[in-house]
Nucleic acid binder design. Sequence first.
DNA 1: TAGATTGTTAATCGATTAACAATC
DNA 2: TAGATTGTTAATCGATTAACAATC
Lengths: 210, 210
Amino acid sequence: MYSRNISNSVIKRLPRYYRFLGELKSEGMTRISSKELSNKMGLTASQIRQDLNCFGGFGQQGYGYNIELLQGEIGRILGLDTPKRAILIGVGNLGRAVALHVNFESKGFQLIGAFDKREALVGQILRNMPIRHISSLDEFCRENLPTAAILCIPKDAAGAVTEQLIKLGVKGFLNFSHYDLAMKHKGIAVENVHFGDRLMTLSYNIDNLE
Amino acid sequence: MYSRNISNSVIKRLPRYYRFLGELKSEGMTRISSKELSNKMGLTASQIRQDLNCFGGFGQQGYGYNIELLQGEIGRILGLDTPKRAILIGVGNLGRAVALHVNFESKGFQLIGAFDKREALVGQILRNMPIRHISSLDEFCRENLPTAAILCIPKDAAGAVTEQLIKLGVKGFLNFSHYDLAMKHKGIAVENVHFGDRLMTLSYNIDNLE
DNA sequence: TAGATTGTTAATCGATTAACAATC
DNA sequence: TAGATTGTTAATCGATTAACAATC
């Protein structure tokens, strides 16, 4: 799609640009300069211009950027206009909370299935979907071809399921488990979310404030 | 405590070292070289040695590192041995899941309180704690002096509460809201957890695989 | 001792910031 | 046109990797 070799540092900033521009838009603003945006976001104007110019010249000299247009472009770059089918693996407290709390639709995904190994959960309704037994995963994926999976299962269970999912064509993972997906499989996209690691970093930063 | 100016890149890697060393320890291993560890973790041996040497010489030439000793050191560096009192603000699906799912004790924290504005939740028991009404936050904090807060509330509500918490001496935040804490307040430690941003990044990376 | 592997310095690489000519 | 602000190149800064002498 867009050229390869856009650095990860840039990509990781795009969602935040997207959010800020969305807010400015909803406040009724129509244009903004890189300088003004940099003040609001705590970045340098230079960085903003560099980041955006990885993808094209969205601004106009002497004017700045059209907020709505720019947000639209960033949304397209992020692929939010091409929803990817996603399934949830593991409907414990965390899986349930993620399913209910996150607005997948506005983030480029469509949650089409939820799976658990616990019979007691099977058939329960979660966000308009019935929870399915993990044994039906293969069949479901062959019929519905999900592109992404949200892993809310313990480390021990993750290895086998990811192996299975990758064979079934799943290309991206939001990984809440401590299973090191990215190490074991190449050619897939992985975002790790590790609360524990973040808490430890927070602990260090609290102890070393100032 | 430890010298200032340890780069954030290093700090963010420490929890992962800590986890890997814990696993190796529980597998019965007692020593490891930077080379071997680098293979397991997908880093360079050079980086591991550089990272560790920010804090001291924990290894031994010709031998490598003692796993148990090294893990202990990293734990201390992260401050896991000095538990910090933390409170949970917002006991919706997400707050509840975080409280139940995360092992605070092993990550340097002690969860001592949970608050919500919804009367219906007040008095319910969450992880051995009664959920308290947000109106009792001031009194509770003055008595129990929490150092950290987990913010599981919507953006709109976050501004006022964080202002209040900072006045009450809270120094660190695990922030699940889209309220931009770090921008508005200086001299505090903030870890942001934004599922939505991570999903958008994942969306991009799926669309741009290979 | 000889071999292995660290601690540490130097070289490289990448990301951020500064500067400014192009241009709306 | 004059002023503002981009797009883009060059300079700086920081982080990663390589190399190797020190040493267990």
